[in-house]
C-alpha cells in the first residue's frame, strides 16, 4: 500500500523520522504486558490513522483479514492460556499493524526508496556502489510487468502444448528468458556508455 496523493500533516514528516518512531513504538509495545496501556495505544494508533486522511477503502481488505487473524489469536490464546494474555497479544498485533499501515499510507513510494538508498549508502565503505543500488531498484520495478507478461506468455504457450500441469515446462523457459532479458539489458546499458562503477 502506497500513499496516493496524501496531503495530511503526516505526509510532510520525513520518511526517516516516521520509520524511527515506528521502530521505537514496535519495541515499546513488546515491553508492555498489560492490556490497559495497549488499549490506549490502539486508540492512539487509530487516531493517527484517521488524522493521516488516508483512503480507507484501500485499507478495507488488509483490515478485515487482520481482524480475522487477531480474532483467531485471541480465542486460541484465551482458551489455552487465559483471556487477558490473549487480549494483550491481540491488541499489540492490531496496534502495530495500524501504526505500520499509517506510515505506509502517508509515505510515497519514492520517499521510501530514497530512504532505503540513504540507509544503504554506508555500504559503500564495504565496496557496494550507491549508483548500482539505485539502478538495481529502478530496473527491478521496471522489470516486474515485463516478467509477469513473460510468465503468462510461457504459461499460455505450454498450456496450448498440453503441458498445463507441468511446472517445470513453465519455469525452465521463464528462467532462460529472464537470463536473456538481463543479458540484453546489460548490453544495451553498455552500448549507451553507462558505467555503474563510477559514481555520478
Amino acid at each position: 500500500m502506497i500513499a496516493a496523493k496524501n496531503d495530511s500533516w503526516l505526509a510532510l514528516v520525513p520518511a526517516g523520522a516516521k520509520f524511527a518512531v515506528l521502530l521505537l513504538v514496535s519495541i515499546g509495545l513488546y515491553l508492555v504486558g498489560h492490556w490497559q496501556p495497549l488499549a490506549v495505544a490502539l486508540l492512539v494508533s487509530i487516531a493517527l490513522l484517521l488524522s493521516a486522511k488516508v483512503a480507507l477503502r484501500q485499507l478495507l481488505w488488509p483490515l478485515v483479514s487482520l481482524l480475522v487473524i487477531v480474532g483467531i489469536i485471541w480465542v486460541l490464546l484465551g482458551i489455552q492460556t487465559g483471556w487477558e494474555q490473549g487480549a494483550v497479544a491481540a491488541l499489540r498485533l492490531l496496534t502495530l499493524c495500524i501504526f505500520a499501515y499509517t506510515v505506509s499510507l502517508s509515505t510515497t513510494f519514492d520517499q521510501m526508496l530514497e530512504l532505503f538508498q540513504k540507509v544503504a549508502s554506508p555500504l559503500k565503505y564495504l565496496g557496494a556502489n550507491p549508483a548500482q543500488i539505485s539502478l538495481g531498484l529502478a530496473l527491478a520495478v521496471r522489470f516486474i510487468p515485463e516478467l509477469k507478461r513473460v510468465y503468462l506468455e510461457v504459461r499460455e504457450a505450454q498450456f496450448a502444448r498440453g503441458l498445463h500441469n507441468n511446472p517445470l515446462a513453465v519455469a525452465v523457459p521463464l528462467v532462460i528468458r529472464s537470463l536473456r532479458i538481463a543479458e540484453e539489458t546489460a548490453e544495451a546499458l553498455d552500448a549507451r556508455g553507462y558505467d555503474s562503477t563510477t559514481t555520478p
Binding site: L135, G136, A140, L147, A182, A186, E187, L189, S196, T197
Partner: peptide, 29 residues
C-alpha cells in the same frame, strides 16, 4: 560487457521474477 552492470541487471531481473511469480494467479501443482 562490464560485469558490474550485468550483475546489477541480473539481480534486478530475478527480483522482478520473484515478484512476478506472486502476481500471476496461483496454479495447482
Amino acid at each position: 560487457t562490464s560485469s558490474a552492470t550485468k550483475d546489477t541487471v541480473l539481480v534486478a531481473v530475478f527480483a522482478a521474477m520473484i515478484a512476478a511469480m506472486g502476481l500471476v494467479p496461483p496454479i495447482t501443482l
